[in-house]
């Protein structure tokens, strides 16, 4: 379980997170939704100790992340940020190999190679395995980075808008993959999503944020409903049930 207690964070005069307290139980897919500037990405970066909070505490399975050695935490929790700009020229397989760094410190064992292959298979990247990252399209590159965090083989997987750069087919495949990773492999997936319909169809839990606070959290049925969505996004959003899935209509 990830436990967040009284977490606050400011960038200069702008307070991005205000006294956030939240428990994220183990297992399943949890989607973080909310308008721009709600603090979703900041919350994710704080959990992954990429930045330090001004106050508050985060524990992962009881370990205070501020006091846990980086390598130890890296075997339990992986994060993929939105922008992954690579200067170094690496192949897809090499990038996957660096996902094993917390386990192998660079000396890849048989088990490491197996984990890399599994991740590449999962993301349908075997055909591109020996291509350099800078020779790939934006969507392929995004999948290569997801393969890296998957190869890291952690219990917790944090992804910041992983559907960026992906077309519909790969967007759907990505969400199905996260869902499979959660339900078949027992991982806990925390994902920032902009498309609330993907969140509605593929999440076990939705956490809605607004103005640096937790606005609501619950099942997709509880959150993807006209009333909470109106208050969350400041707009009227109709919700219809189509083939057993709750779909928000906000295009018209």
């Amino acid at each position: 379980m990830i436990r967040i207690e009284n977490l606050s964070k400011s960038y200069g005069p702008a307070q991005v997170l205000r006294d956030v307290t939240l428990d994220l139980p183990k297992g399943g897919v949890t989607s973080l939704i909310g308008p721009n500037g709600a603090g979703k990405s900041t919350l994710l970066s704080l959990i992954a100790r990429l930045i330090a909070p001004d106050s508050g505490r985060i524990t992962v399975d009881g370990m205070d992340i501020a006091r846990t050695p980086g390598a130890e935490l890296a075997r339990r929790l992986a994060i993929l940020r939105q922008e992954n700009h690579l200067v170094a020229r690496l192949t897809v397989r090499e990038l996957g190999g660096f996902g094993r760094f917390p386990h192998s410190a660079g000396r890849l064992t048989q088990a490491d190679h197996a984990a890399i292959d599994r991740a590449l298979d999962y993301l349908d990247l075997q055909a591109l395995a020996d291509r350099f990252i800078d020779q790939l399209s934006g969507g392929q590159r995004q999948r290569a980075f997801v393969a890296m965090v998957l190869a890291q083989d952690t219990d917790y997987l944090l992804l910041d808008e992983p559907l960026n750069n992906l077309d519909m087919k790969h967007g759907q495949a990505m969400m199905r993959l996260l869902s499979r990773a959660a339900h078949d492999l027992g991982k806990s997936v925390l994902v920032v999503l902009h498309d609330i319909n993907f969140a509605s169809c593929h999440s076990d839990r939705i956490v809605a944020m607004r103005d640096g606070r937790i606005f609501a959290s619950g099942t997709p049925a509880e959150i993807v409903a006209p009333d909470p969505l109106r208050d969350l996004y400041d707009m009227e959003i109709a919700v219809r049930e189509i083939d057993g899935q709750r779909i928000a209509l906000f295009y018209g």
Binding site: S45, L50, R81, H85, L86, F101, A105, G106, Q152
Partner: peptide, 21 residues
């Protein structure tokens, strides 16, 4: 220390996620 340096070359965020200072 080649692997460490390559990981550092992936940037602060990726390196931190992989447990490297």
């Amino acid at each position: 220390a080649a692997d460490r340096f390559t990981v550092a070359g992936l940037g602060h965020d990726v390196a931190s996620s992989l447990g490297l200072s």
